[in-house]
Design a protein around this nucleic acid. Structure first.
Length: 566
DNA sequence: TTCCTGTTGTATAC
DNA sequence: GTATACAACAGGAA
């Protein structure tokens, strides 16, 4: 730290925050601060982008305020500007005398190339760094002839040839900041560049739910810290065994922090690695926590390598299906009014709290698409994008492809029952009672199927099905059976058009679908029941804010490698 | 061609 | 709690 520069700092830098809302492991931010006499940390709020709901906006504003607070402690500030990047940058380049623009690589379809060109035209040097993913997605794709691996194993073997992920970069500290830090006018900063409120963004602040998961790097590292004491839990973690019906999250709920980059995936990876090192044995990918981070990598790679990844049409890996158009059923699903308490409870938790367990996502996604309602996964994707705090373009689309049986997942005859699935881990329906208080007095025998309760029982529970709570909008047995047949038909069509297979001996169907390949799943991080720590002593708390221990052994700020474009 | 595997199904039997 | 049928797919290895 504190490497004093041998020559005057020539640069005026803008670091453009998009994701990566943190000071730890942020190589592009370090690059901005290097040889720099004036640094402007910038966030551009683009009101025209995205479908985020109120809870997600709150999370983002939390994160921005936290970032500003941390920068302020070092005498700097965050500059928040509203507009679209193409319009904002030329103005700022001119006003701030910018010579260098740095930002984190984004694997999603974005306007990065346009901005980079624009910067170049203004004589501004552009530096991009990989830090949102464990590996450089472009490199992984190149290693596989430009194609995304379509199985988890496939990705694993590619990554094996690349070796372990890079270590996190050092946290930005006061020592990295030279010169003026970019603050021109402390008096007018808040009015000109302050973090706006929900109201100022046109969001209704009365719509937010309980503030269970405050946004920001500080909250992210605190959450990580509190997991540190649970060595046995971390080492035993097996995702499929965690419970979707747990009343408090049975997984980590680090996903919103990873999505916005309040937590660095590399910091998490190497911290887990340290925990694993100290133990005799630990779970392994794909079910372990390391495995969850590799699923994340899997879908980022798929999202970057597969065209039209978030759509059915034009997506070469996606099964082409004639989904129904049924706005009433879609609305019932979204609002938690399907008449299936398990489904409705999950959707209620989603709308109010912004986070649901991974397997709960499976249950409602299957219900919406191939299981019961036969509605396009693209509709579900949009709802999740609005309501989930951790909705991430690649992971969201990838998981919807998976659950709808459109790609990656092929055993489409495995269908989640909206009645039986929740019962496995919650016989008495405590989860339903929590999120659907209208049903809270039903006996356990009927809590998953209240329409089956005799009239007297419904009266006793103070809830008449059809009056206070809806009748089921579909009959699961019949609907799932019919849909299974429709899945089979869609696949048969695909088979007919595939050049690599003999035509299946089935009656030919009218050709409508496009040829599809096939492929594998994704992960939202979660859970496992709180198990006791078997007496391992708690480790020292490494994450107050800076995290020196895991920082790359070397101090090299950023390798001036291919990350630099211009 | 055959065989095995795939993070996370359900219902029934013991 | 574990085993099995259910009805059966895609991809990759052998």
């Amino acid at each position: 730290p504190g490497a004093s520069l041998p020559h005057p700092s020539p640069h005026s830098s803008i670091h453009w925050f998009r994701k990566g809302l943190r000071l730890h492991d942020n190589p592009a931010l370090l690059a901005a601060a290097t040889d720099c006499h004036r640094l402007h940390p910038l966030f551009i709020l683009d009101p025209s982008s995205g479908r985020a709901g109120t809870n997600a906006w709150r999370f983002l504003l939390d994160a921005l305020r936290d970032l500003d607070r941390s920068l302020r402690e070092m005498g700097s500030r965050l500059f928040v500007v509203q507009g679209c990047p193409e319009e904002v940058f030329p103005r700022l380049f001119h006003a701030w005398g910018t010579t260098r623009l740095t930002f984190e690589v984004d694997t999603e379809p974005s306007r990065d190339a346009t901005v980079a060109e624009l910067a170049e035209r203004h004589g501004v040097k552009v530096i991009r760094e990989v830090s949102h993913t464990l590996y450089d997605t472009e490199r992984v794709l190149a290693l596989n002839n430009g194609k995304a691996p379509l199985t988890y194993k496939g990705l694993q073997s590619l990554l094996a040839s690349l070796g372990p992920p890079e270590k996190p970069a050092p946290t930005l500290t006061l020592e990295h900041l030279q010169g003026e830090h970019g603050v021109v006018d402390w008096v007018s900063h808040d009015t000109e560049y302050g973090v706006p409120t929900l109201e100022e963004l046109g969001q209704d602040p009365t719509e937010v739910g309980p503030h269970l998961y405050p946004g920001g790097e500080t909250a992210a590292l605190a959450r990580l810290n509190s997991l540190m004491d649970r060595t046995a839990w971390l080492c035993d973690f097996k995702k499929p065994e965690t419970e979707p019906t747990s009343l408090s999250p049975s997984t980590t709920v680090l996903s919103p922090y990873l999505k916005f980059g309040c937590l660095s995936v590399r910091t998490f990876w190497w911290w887990l690695d340290e925990v694993y090192q100290g133990q005799r044995e630990h779970s392994q990918p794909p079910v372990s926590l390391h495995g969850q981070l590799l699923w994340r990598e899997f879908f980022y790679t798929a999202g970057a390598g597969i065209p039209n990844f978030d759509r059915m049409v034009g997506n070469p890996v996606c099964l082409q299906v004639n989904w129904d158009n049924n706005p009433q059923h879609l609305r019932a699903w979204r609002e938690g009014q399907t008449g299936y308490p398990f489904i409705d409870a999950i959707m209620t938790q989603l709308r109010t709290e912004g986070w649901i367990h991974h397997l709960a996502r499976h249950a409602v996604a299957c219900f919406l698409t191939r299981g019961d309602l036969w509605i396009s996964w693209e509709e579900g994707l949009k709802v999740f994008e609005e309501l989930l705090l951790d909705a991430d373009w690649s992971l969201n689309a990838g998981n919807w492809l998976w659950l709808s049986g459109s790609a990656f997942f092929h055993r489409y005859f495995h269908i989640y029952s909206p009645v039986a699935f929740g019962k496995k881990t919650d016989r008495d329906g405590a989860y339903i009672r929590k999120y659907l208080p209208v049903l809270k007095d039903f006996p356990a025998k009927y809590i998953y199927e209240p329409w089956k309760a005799p009239r007297a029982v419904q009266e006793q529970a103070g809830c008449l099905v059809g009056t206070h709570y809806p009748q089921p909008i579909v009959e699961h047995g019949a609907a799932s059976k019919r849909n299974l047949g429709r899945m089979k038909a869609a696949r048969a069509q695909k088979g007919n058009k595939s050049p690599r297979r003999r035509p299946p001996h089935r009656p030919p169907l009218p050709p409508t679908g496009e040829n599809c390949l096939a492929h594998a799943p994704a992960a939202f991080y979660s859970v496992a029941k709180h198990r006791e720590n078997r007496g391992e002593l708690s480790r020292k708390r490494l994450f107050s804010l800076p995290r020196p221990a895991a920082a790359a052994g070397g101090k090299a700020i950023i390798p001036p490698s291919s990350a630099t474009i211009q």
